[in-house]
Design a protein around this nucleic acid. Structure first.
Lengths: 198, 198
DNA sequence: CAGCGTGTTGACCGTACGGTCCAGAACGAA
DNA sequence: TTCGTTCTGGACCGTACGGTCAACACGCTG
């Protein structure tokens, strides 16, 4: 390596993530990315390839982050699986609490915009959803073992339901439906899963 | 009116809807719209204004359609409200049944792409979601009156939950998660609402 | 049948797009 | 210090974008 890179790849990816996240794929120009990353076209192109490749890289990193984040949350300090599940849905409510439309999950935006026409995006989305469902399932089973969720519930089905509710809350957050609606959704979903009200 | 229009406005809007629906707003060019509608730029521009105005027009029509569609379905021939609710979720499952990612609801795509930056889109989305929730609520109340849903459920909360689940199923459909997952989601949501399995 | 006002058409405009390329800068290796 | 290699910045390219406009076509009105 004759001349070392001047930039930190992680930081550049972070800036690019923010830009794509705010504007979407098609509405983000290379100029936007250059401005956000403070990199010239040559560097951007040389390091990551074209716009599509950079987006895929960004999306992959984002998906890895949210699965790792959920995994960490679910193995976090909270004492019981039931408490952790409630905290998870509280976070989803809080994300949509401010008035007006909120920036939704990048994966949701990317899937809506690109999954139908871009196989790699669709594959990554499916894989991520599947992993999230798996993590939720483990948590449901853990709550069942602790006696906080009745044992007769099918953990797989319950996890799928919770995943769908979380994605639906994302959609309602995008539109800015407001906290009380999200509160209704979260409460109902948790009761449906067999958890008692906090 | 010296010279009458050669085209049918509804048909042009239908073609434009298909085009935006398939590609999204930013990824649809005026050339795409011209090809789809068989109209020249001038006509398109003269009749509907610029691309954004046309999209808004398309989205408004689409939202009116789906609310009218749901309203019609819920006052349809099926005997009971419970049966109609089940049929509604069966439709959502069927929409995601084919393997691979399916084209999701235009409203979902538009909200994900534009709601954060375009107030009118966000307003339309909120309004539509609110109307859908209202229709679902009426149906829940109807099912309660018929004794198919326990009377102690809060119809508002239940409707919000069902709405979120439907939007979540959209998201999973976009990614192509497959029929069995959607089946799990729908079944669990309906049981959660208090309906017995079909 | 004449005239007017609208609708249609497609050429045209300026711009911004994604992408390429190269001259020079920076740095490690010898 | 010199050389070789990589990285950098930005000039440059062809294209396609959204949007405008003027000339023409059409048909209703009187």
């Amino acid at each position: 390596m004759a001349r070392p890179r001047k930039f930190d790849e992680q930081q550049v990816l972070h800036s690019a993530t923010e830009t794509f996240w705010t504007s979407g794929f098609a509405a983000t120009s290379l100029d936007d990315l250059m401005r956000a990353t403070s990199l010239g076209k040559g560097s951007l192109y040389g390091a990551f390839g074209d716009k599509q490749a950079l987006f895929q890289r960004v999306l992959d990193g984002y998906c890895a982050n949210i699965t790792a984040g959920l995994s960490k949350h679910l193995s976090g300090p909270d004492s019981s699986a039931a408490t952790r599940l409630r905290a998870l849905f509280d976070m989803a409510v809080a994300a949509g609490a401010p008035p007006g439309p909120q920036r939704a999950c990048l994966l949701a935006k990317a899937t809506a915009e690109l999954a139908a026409t871009n196989t790699e995006v669709a594959v990554r989305a499916r894989q991520t959803f599947t992993m999230l469902a798996g993590l939720l399932r483990a948590e449901v089973e853990s709550a069942q073992a602790a006696g906080d969720i009745p044992g007769d519930r099918d953990p797989q089905r319950t996890a799928h339901h919770l995943l769908a509710v979380l994605r639906g809350m994302e959609a309602l957050t995008e539109a800015g439906m407001g906290e009380s609606v999200l509160r209704d959704v979260a409460d109902t979903a948790l009761v449906a899963a067999g958890l008692q009200q906090a």
